[in-house]
Simulated scan of single mutants.
Amino acid sequence: MRFDGWIAGTGTTSGTRIVLGHWLRSPFGAFSDVMLERADGERVLLAPTRRTAQFIRGTYSFDRVLVVPVDVRVTNDLWTVVAGSLRLRFTTGRRGPLGQLLRAVPGALAARPVWATLTDWPARVLLSGVRTRGSAGAGRRAWYGARDLRPLVEVSAVFEGHDLGVMAPVEPPVRFGFGSVPRNPALTRVTTTVQLRHGH
Rank of each mutant, 00 (worst) to 15 (best):
R2Q: 10
T92R: 10
A111W: 05
V181P: 05
H22M: 12
V72S: 01
R51A: 14
T191D: 08
V158G: 10
T16D: 04
S26I: 07
S85M: 02
A136W: 05
F3G: 06
D63G: 14
F3H: 14
N184F: 09
L86I: 03
V68Q: 06
N184H: 13
R51S: 14
R147C: 06
R131M: 04
V44N: 00
R17A: 14
V65R: 00
G137W: 04
G137N: 05
P172I: 03
G84A: 04
W6M: 13
D120Y: 07
D63W: 00
T192M: 12
S135T: 12
W115V: 15
R103K: 15
Q54A: 15
V170W: 01
S26K: 03
T117C: 10
G137C: 08
A39D: 08
G29V: 05
G129V: 05
A111H: 09
H22K: 13
T75G: 13
L98G: 02
R189L: 08
V44I: 14
I56G: 03
A104I: 11
P106W: 06
T49A: 12
L102V: 09
R133F: 10
G84L: 01
M167C: 11
T192L: 14
T13G: 11
W143T: 11
G5L: 06
A142W: 05
V158M: 14
R175C: 01
G99L: 07
A116P: 12
A168V: 12
T192A: 14
V74Y: 02
M1Y: 10
W6G: 04
R64I: 02
A136I: 09
W6Y: 14
D40G: 04
P106K: 07
F178H: 09
V34C: 06
L66T: 05
V70L: 03
V166N: 07
R189C: 09
L88W: 05
G134S: 07
D163Y: 11
G134H: 10
G58V: 03
V19P: 00
